[in-house]
Design a protein around this nucleic acid. Structure first.
Lengths: 209, 209
DNA sequence: TTCGGATTGTGAATTCGGTCACAATCCCCA
DNA sequence: TGGGGATTGTGACCGAATTCACAATCCGAA
């Protein structure tokens, strides 16, 4: 839609700006400066301005950005103008925690399905959804127009689930399993506790962020 | 310790190489090529070699890397030659899930304390630890030589917890709360579901990974 | 109406990370 | 003993991301 492509690094920061902005707006701030945002997101003010410039945003020199308009612009850029269906596969401790996650706020991501393969888990209720047999997943996805899949299964089956998700047409995958997924086209983001800890471990000794 | 500083991007990949290596080793592979690792980690083979060259590693031309020696080298580089004490603050759904996380395998990260502020949660047992009042945290940290703190509290109190952790001498923080923490010196890594979903959302429309 | 302080937007410079290509080296086999 | 296939290590290039610095612009006050 939007003509210019936004650099990956910028895309990754837009949600942070948006969140900072929502907090400021809730506090009644109408105008924000790049400096103000920078402090809250822990980056350089020049970087904020350059990032925002990719949105074709127009702040006002000498004044700053209108916080509500800027919020709208960022939401548009991120595509947060419509709703997204999300499924979670693997309802163990982590999957259940993610299902209960309330951090979406007024966001547009809606969890519409929870799946597991364990008969002991299937049928149990998490939040206001009932865990269904993973074998129902393909049909459900097609029916509900699901676009994002979250994998919270054991590593051993994560790849299989990913392949299946992709076959169902899911193009975006958030992977919490300790595996690097091999996919055809899908966009995968990986979140792994043990990886993060190991990275932190390195910087414990080689200290200079 | 190790003379040369390793680029951040490389550090972030080392845990992936290590994990791939452990799987290969478990399968009985003694020698691995950069190409083999590259496939499993979804990166370029040249990048693998360049990354490993920072470790001063010596593979054997025409042959590859000795998988057990390479594993040792990576572990040394990451500092995984000793144990790390970890505490988790905020034992809600997510905190409890993290406490039960078994993905550490034979890793050296040991969760030695769980803390919460809610009287209803304090005293409950998660895994084989009992959740303690967060007010005991400073004393416990000093006593047990804790180096890493995981924050899984509501966003509203995350900053306060971070400040307290830092005052207790914790220099590494893994932040699951929806906030950007302001810290003095500590190294912070942030993991947030809603941010990840928003990034995925962007690429759903602007598709070309 | 003019001046000063504040803040944006952006070209230019710089740093960082990724990719390519190839010489150097090794093992194995004939 | 020599040659061929395989694979590493790395210099050179390329592109992305960050930072710098400053002209352009705006608001408000005198």
């Amino acid at each position: 839609m939007n003509s210019v492509t936004i650099p990956k690094a910028t895309v990754a920061r837009l949600p942070l700006y948006l969140h900072a902005l929502e907090i400021l707006a809730a506090e009644g701030t109408c105008t924000v400066s790049s400096e103000m945002l920078a402090r809250r997101v822990n980056v350089n003010a020049a970087k904020v301005r350059k990032d925002l410039s990719f949105l074709g945003t127009h702040g006002v020199r000498g004044v700053g950005y209108d916080s509500s308009e800027l919020g709208t612009r960022i939401r548009e850029a991120l595509g947060l103008t419509r709703d997204f269906g999300v499924v979670i596969v693997g309802i163990g401790n982590l999957g259940a925690a993610l299902a209960n996650y309330d951090g979406f706020g007024e966001q547009r991501f809606h969890i519409v399905g929870l799946y597991d393969a364990d008969p002991g888990t299937i049928g149990s209720k998490v939040g206001d959804l009932v865990v269904r047999d993973v074998r129902h997943m393909p049909a459900d996805i097609a029916e509900n127009n699901v676009e994002i899949g979250i994998i919270a299964t054991p590593a051993a089956v994560a790849q299989e689930v990913a392949t299946q998700l992709e076959q169902c047409g899911v193009r975006s995958i958030l992977n919490f399993a300790q595996t690097v997924l091999q996919v055809e086209q899908a966009d995968v983001r990986r979140v792994d506790l043990s990886t993060e800890l190991q990275i932190l471990g390195y910087y414990l000794r080689h200290d200079q962020s």
